[in-house]
């Protein structure tokens, strides 16, 4: 196994609620190798999304450390983490989170960094062609099917050639065929050298994953 792309140690995240403190992540240790396809499964509320957001520099842990590409994510400034997300991480969400008033192409280009210039436009079009959305460039998200929306979100995540794609239930709203297609694209990205970490409670991802982890009550229980 190559060096871990993502490494977390004793990662803990608690939330204060009116009913008391809830532990979302409980001393999680995890290493994800570069070029791997890792699938984390578990029931709703077990901490999968919390883990993904924490690994992606979006949610500061209560304790523990996250390293991404060797860099301590939460030792970076807020601006540094934003740059890290823009350049190194691609997010895919279950609800797609496309901007409703932008076209398919503009939604993808939203991820473009300021320095990307003209090249971003060409790459966005090429990605959308690859994902079968060539005829849909000027369409709004409301005019797309669920599968098309998720493929648009996938193109947005892949635009900056990130080192890691973090996908949170990316097929939760898709039928099996579309779900398979999304994972095929993620697998294609992994084959091209990228690292994929998917959290899901479905089975489809297992066909593509080279590693499966199970989560329960904020802990990683087993590794296959």
């Amino acid at each position: 196994m190559s060096d871990p792309m993502i490494q977390c140690e004793q990662l803990t995240r608690t939330f204060r609620t009116r009913q008391g403190t809830v532990t979302g992540l409980n001393e999680v240790d995890l290493g994800v190798s570069a070029g791997s396809f890792t699938c984390i499964r578990g029931p709703s509320g077990c901490g999968k999304t919390t883990l993904l957001l924490t690994l992606g520099g979006m949610l500061r842990p209560s304790a523990g450390r996250v390293r991404l590409g060797g860099r301590d994510v939460y030792a970076l400034s807020s601006g540094g983490r934003a740059r890290l997300r823009a350049e190194q991480i691609g997010f895919v969400f279950q609800m797609f989170h496309l901007v409703p008033y932008l076209s398919v192409l503009d939604n993808v280009l939203l991820a473009a960094t300021e320095t990307a210039g003209e090249e971003a436009g060409a790459r966005a079009k090429s990605l959308l062609e690859e994902l079968g959305l060539g005829p849909r460039l000027t369409h709004r998200p409301a005019q797309l099917s669920a599968g098309e929306r998720q493929r648009t979100a996938l193109a947005r995540a892949l635009l900056n050639r990130p080192a890691v794609v973090l996908a949170d239930e990316p097929t939760g709203n898709l039928d099996p065929d579309n779900a398979r297609e999304v994972f095929q694209h993620l697998d294609g990205y992994r084959r091209a050298g990228g690292t994929v970490l998917v959290v899901t409670h479905g089975d489809t991802a297992l066909e593509f994953a080279d590693r499966e982890l199970r989560m329960k009550a904020g802990r990683i229980l087993e590794t296959q």
């Binding site: 601006g79 934003a82 740059r83 890290l84 823009a86 997010f91 989170h97 939203l110 991820a111 947005r156």
Partner: peptide
């Protein structure tokens, strides 16, 4: 989403 895309 903008934050996730690295917008500060």
């Amino acid at each position: 989403v903008l934050r996730a895309l690295g917008k500060g």
